[in-house]
Computed example of a mutant assay.
Amino acid sequence: MEELTGTILTGESFEPVQGRLVVDDGRIEAVEETAAASSDIILPAFVNAHTHVGDSVAKEAAVGLSLDEAVAPPESVKHRRLAAADRADLVAAIRRTLRLMRRTGTITCLDFRENGTFGATALREAAEPLEFDPFIFGSDDESVLDVADGYGASGANDDEFAAERAACERRGVPFAIHAGEPDATDIHPAIDLDPDLLVHMVHAEQEHLDRVAERSIPIAVCPRANTTLGVGDAPIADLLDHTTVALGTDNVMLNGPSMFREMAYTATRFDVTAREVLRMATTAGADIAGLNCGVIEPGRRAALVVLDGDSDNLADSADPVESVVRRASALDVERVVV
């Protein structure tokens, strides 16, 4: 049994409570309001809802390039670098990225892993020595589902994915797909596949939002990557009005996988509240992946980030939720509890 004390961001509203949090056998046993001398801030651990960690072998290789030049299959910089990568070098680069995420409060990522079974097993190998369990959306043909947790499609304009969608249905695993990143032309075809997750939706219009709401399809948004590639800004406030929205950092070659940076950027660029952003970075991703964490309440898995509320950065804050979203950084992380 372990006790944590300080300001605890409790429940789905992240209500700040001064008190004590009791962890027993990996679960939150109790959250008690009581006087606490500690200045720590305790929040749910992050779930990065969209990554491409294979791109760890190509950091900054796409600076200044268009979307197609940077990431479009099969001839982009990304795919040429992946094809040329030695397996040992690929695994080592991915492991560095996973270790960084774990140290900075992210306990899992929903990763679109290229290169089929080879890519998925490389990611498993990279994660094995770490306390990090990635949720892998595999690629190529149905056989990848023997080693992946689901299937991740590049986009409905790139290929036909009906067979892969049907395979996911037979196996009872999720099917995810990019949609609405360069333009809106692939959104309706993506929704027609009845996906379990849509990624980006930068160019979503009302007709798309209505279909998403009708089918309760969650969406992962990646604001910094969209800006880096110059494809526009997702209508995040409108998306939140229609469905579950989670936050991801996207390609490692474009941005570091920092949920702190992603939250701060989202809070300052979009018409959303700090609580909405924190929910996108924690609860929403956990729900999409079927994890019993993302909310601090009894019975949940104890996946927590402890920040030093008395750091030079966070001391004297008037609102801990706003500080976590807009101001906190990796330097403020005291520990990650899993």
Rank of each mutant, 00 (worst) to 15 (best):
T7M: 05
I8M: 01
G19E: 09
V23R: 11
D24M: 06
D24F: 06
D25E: 15
V31Y: 01
S38A: 09
I42K: 05
L43N: 01
V47P: 00
A49Q: 12
V57F: 07
E60D: 14
A62E: 02
V63G: 00
A70T: 08
A85S: 15
A85I: 03
D86C: 08
D89Q: 14
L90G: 08
A92H: 13
T97L: 05
M101C: 11
L110W: 03
R113Q: 12
T117N: 07
L123I: 15
A127R: 01
E128F: 01
P134K: 09
P134Q: 09
E142L: 09
D149S: 14
A153L: 10
E169V: 12
E169M: 05
R170N: 13
I187C: 05
L193C: 10
L197E: 09
L197P: 06
M201C: 13
M201W: 01
M201I: 04
H203Q: 06
E205K: 14
E207A: 14
L209K: 05
D210N: 08
R215F: 04
S216K: 10
S216G: 10
C222K: 10
T227G: 05
V231E: 12
D233Q: 15
D233L: 10
I236F: 04
D238P: 04
D238Q: 13
D241L: 02
H242C: 07
T243Q: 07
A246D: 12
N251V: 09
V252M: 12
G256V: 06
S258G: 11
M259H: 07
R261F: 02
R269L: 11
D271K: 03
V272M: 04
T273C: 10
T283K: 14
A289M: 12
N292R: 14
G299L: 07
G299K: 13
R300I: 00
D310C: 04
S311D: 07
A315L: 11
A318R: 15
E322M: 09
A328E: 03
L331K: 14
D332K: 09
R335M: 03
